[in-house]
């Protein structure tokens, strides 16, 4: 069983990284032939960085759009971020002080994560417009994430698992020195679902993670009059055109 999980984890990690890298390479290779930032847009690259940061960290556009979706969505994502930070201690031998301190509040992030997900799920079920646009996979992602949060909560607050052994297992993964894993059911389920998530992410709508940063509508500088912008595939058209010159 431990070997199966060790293998699964390794494969899932590789799929996640390679899948994302492949997508990011694809996104960066496809040209953006025209300047299409949604305006008002920043006039400098620094301004663009701030614009993207506001979207990635504060979900600024979503806040403007719909307060409930923002509340649940932001709560879920920020909680997930804290939860992920908290889990770093399984992969680091000597846990640094900030992570130790974070743990005190961090362990409650699983609850807020669950609440956020439940709110998003309810919205998908009960708001007719959102229900109309939902495919089965849209519900399944939320259910999957809720199960992950739920099993995590069970292990932390109800049926404790041997976290020393889990840490040994995780450290073993990193150093390719596989260790045995406790066999409680919640842990088995928790880790299995996490692996499923990691494997499916590069093939799913969870590609919004890199997509956010590659949207030309948000990541372009508003300077088309000052700086000429030409895509590679348009160069042939460009050369043809430049035959028209003042005499």
């Amino acid at each position: 069983m431990s070997a199966f999980y060790a293998l699964l984890f390794t494969v899932a990690f590789l799929v996640l990284i390679l899948g994302l890298v492949k997508k990011i390479i694809q996104y960066s290779r496809v040209p953006a032939p025209l300047k299409i930032p949604v305006t008002p847009a920043p006039l400098t690259k620094g301004g663009v960085a701030i614009r993207l940061a506001k979207e990635a960290i504060l979900f600024a556009a979503l806040f403007r759009s719909n307060k409930w979706t923002w509340l649940f969505g932001w709560l879920f994502h920020m909680s997930l971020f804290v939860v992920l930070l908290n889990h770093l201690r399984f992969f680091i031998k000597d846990v640094p002080l900030p992570l130790v301190l974070l743990q005190n509040v961090g362990e409650y992030a699983a609850f807020t994560m669950f609440i956020g997900l439940a709110g998003l799920f309810a919205r998908r079920l009960f708001v007719a417009r959102v229900k109309y646009i939902s495919a089965p996979s849209d519900y399944l992602w939320l259910i999957l994430l809720m199960f992950i949060a739920f099993t995590g909560i069970v292990m932390r607050f109800i049926s404790h698992t041997d976290i020393i052994a889990v840490k040994e297992f995780c450290l073993g993964l990193v150093s390719f020195n596989w260790q045995s894993l406790p066999t409680d059911v919640p842990l088995m389920v928790h880790l299995f679902l996490v692996c499923v998530l990691m494997i499916l992410l590069p093939f799913s709508k969870l590609l919004h993670i890199p997509g956010l940063f590659f949207a030309p509508s948000r990541n372009q500088v508003d300077n088309p009059r000052e700086k000429r912008h030409v895509a590679n595939w348009a160069l042939d058209l460009d050369a043809e055109k430049n035959k028209t010159q003042p005499k």
Binding site: V30, A32, R129, S134, K205, L207, F214
Partner: peptide, 24 residues
């Protein structure tokens, strides 16, 4: 077009069906 327009390629992938646009 997917190979010529980054916007089109990225936008096909990145929608999370959050519903923010549905009443806009």
């Amino acid at each position: 077009l997917l190979g010529r327009y980054r916007s089109f390629q990225v936008f096909m992938d990145s929608c999370i069906k959050c519903g923010a646009c549905t009443d806009k």
